[in-house]
């Protein structure tokens, strides 16, 4: 799990030795711990029994977010004796409008929902407009999903605006200029932060919407990019 407790003096010595070795990757799991084992140092394992997950890939990050919905007893976020502290946005409670549908989802302060949200995790101040469908998605703070957009398995970074009637995610077959099998799998689409996606754009599964990517003029789906 990448969590270690060292005897201070042993770790200090090991780090000095590791630093002196030009062939080392300077990695705990690859270098420090194997070297200590080779030196015959005593190493004990501790078996952790609670929920844990490495979120080092897009699919595992997405999956872990879905675990909040699917395994609320395992990844228990409401344990008052063991709160997860965070920055608290200064935003009002979330609002769910009269035509909205919200199912199997996690919502937080500042969200305003007028469309359908199913099996998704929404961060603070996300707006889902009327007629939009958000399914199996992870929407980060301030994301806006405009009217009629349909998203499935999308992981969208902060402040990105999805234009009207955009279709994106695992239900859109085919490949496009943004298809990226290296980063995306299981149909998941990823959106960079601060983008505005053009109205009506169609984004096939496994796409990584990256504003630095050069694409042909007629394939451009990014209308603008917010630069702080």
């Amino acid at each position: 799990m990448g969590v270690y407790i060292f005897t201070w003096s042993v770790l200090r010595q090991a780090l000095i030795e590791d630093e002196a070795n030009p062939n080392s990757n300077n990695d705990f799991g690859k270098n420090i711990v194997p070297n200590l084992l080779a030196q015959g140092k005593k190493l004990c394992a501790y078996r952790f029994s609670g929920y844990w997950k490495d979120v080092g890939t897009i699919s595992s990050l997405w999956e872990t977010n879905m675990d909040i919905l699917d395994k609320p007893e395992e990844i228990n976020l409401v344990d008052r004796s063991w709160k997860i502290f965070s920055r608290n946005p200064v935003k009002p409670s979330h609002f769910i409008g009269s035509g909205a549908k919200v199912k199997n989802s996690a919502l937080t302060d500042g969200c305003r929902i007028f469309g359908d949200v199913e099996h998704s995790v929404l961060s603070e101040s996300v707006i889902v407009e009327k007629g939009a469908i958000v399914k199996d998605c992870v929407l980060m703070p301030g994301v806006v999903v405009k009217e009629g957009a349909h998203l499935e398995r999308c992981v969208i970074d902060q402040g990105t605006v999805i234009g009207k009637n955009v279709q994106a995610g695992s239900f859109v077959e085919g490949e496009g200029p943004y298809t990226n099998h290296k980063i995306c799998s299981e149909g998941i689409c990823v959106f960079e932060r601060g983008l505005t996606i053009k109205e009506g754009a169609v984004i096939p599964k496994n796409s990584m919407i990256d504003s630095d990517l050069e694409v042909p003029e007629d394939c451009k789906i990014i209308e603008s990019k917010f630069r702080a």
């Binding site: 409670s93 549908k101 929404l122």
Partner: peptide
């Protein structure tokens, strides 16, 4: 208060409401 997000389960039906964390 550092509250976790609100969880809506399978049969939740929401309309025209304000809900806190």
């Amino acid at each position: 208060k550092d509250e976790a997000p609100t969880l809506y389960f399978d049969n939740a039906e929401m309309s025209d409401s304000i809900v806190s964390d």
